[in-house]
């Protein structure tokens, strides 16, 4: 296990949900990607137009001859430009991905700062099947398609996801939460419950058969008291 505590500390305080992590990284990539793409495309279009054939004489133009072998000499000016552009783009790509990586460890492990209570973490087993989701709670309680969780800014819900039959993918878009549901394997994920009254759509993101489109569910965030009532009571 790579032990890099220093990186975990770099996840800023107050950043608790995967959604927020995702939005920041996505925005950075979008801005840089659009910038780079625009610059490159405009440069290309400009030069394509600038060097269009205007029908002038070929004098002084070292035209390729039919049947010639390619030479090993390159135009050194252009070669320099090539390496400069290549180097620049390499630096940009590597920086941007390394930056995203520093936040990966946070997403992988979930919040582990002391201020987030870990005893109160709720572990829910998620089992995908054709065509729905079964949730099993620590006290053995189960529910189908609707995952009820207690509210809380610090309330971490840990998910252990598997499948009863084929490969599914459990995903809640608004929470930026996604975990593969693979038979014979258990994959881990987490999210923060947040405010009561919210509900988040669950969809299946891996083709799993005729009912793939209909495998919708819901995560419902309840007031802690109401949740306790439901949790202890009958189904």
């Amino acid at each position: 296990m790579i032990d890099i505590p220093v990186l975990v500390q770099q996840a800023p305080e107050g950043w608790q949900t995967q959604a927020e992590v995702f939005y920041e990284i996505f925005l950075v990539f979008l801005v840089i990607g659009t910038l780079v793409g625009t610059v490159v495309i405009i440069y290309t279009l400009h030069h394509a137009y600038k060097y269009r054939d205007t029908g002038e004489d070929d004098d002084g133009f070292d035209a390729p001859q039919l049947g010639e072998l390619p030479s090993t000499q390159s135009d050194s000016g252009k070669s320099k430009k090539l390496f400069l552009s290549f180097g620049l783009s390499a630096i940009i790509v590597i920086s941007v991905v390394v930056y995203s990586y520093t936040l990966l460890l946070y997403v992988e492990e979930g919040p582990s700062q002391p201020e987030i209570e870990t005893e109160g973490n709720m572990d829910i087993k998620v089992t995908g099947f054709q065509f729905g989701w079964e949730f099993e709670y620590p006290n053995g309680q189960t529910s189908l398609d609707t995952m009820r969780v207690p509210a809380g800014e610090d309330q971490v819900i840990r998910l252990h996801v598997t499948s009863d039959d084929v490969w599914h993918t459990f995903g809640a878009t608004e929470l930026r939460l996604k975990i593969d549901s693979i038979p014979g394997q258990t994959a881990e994920g987490w999210f923060i419950a947040g405010e009561a009254g919210n509900s988040y759509l669950i969809e299946c993101f891996e083709l799993c058969g005729a009912g793939h489109s209909q495998m919708d569910g819901e995560i419902v965030v309840m007031e802690p008291d109401e949740f306790d009532e439901w949790y202890e009571g009958d189904d």
Partner: peptide, 16 residues
């Protein structure tokens, strides 16, 4: 857009 997918954190959400 492929570079986006190469960043694991983003790929988690783009998956599927």
């Amino acid at each position: 857009t492929g570079v986006f997918l190469g960043a694991i954190v983003l790929d988690y959400e783009f998956r599927g």
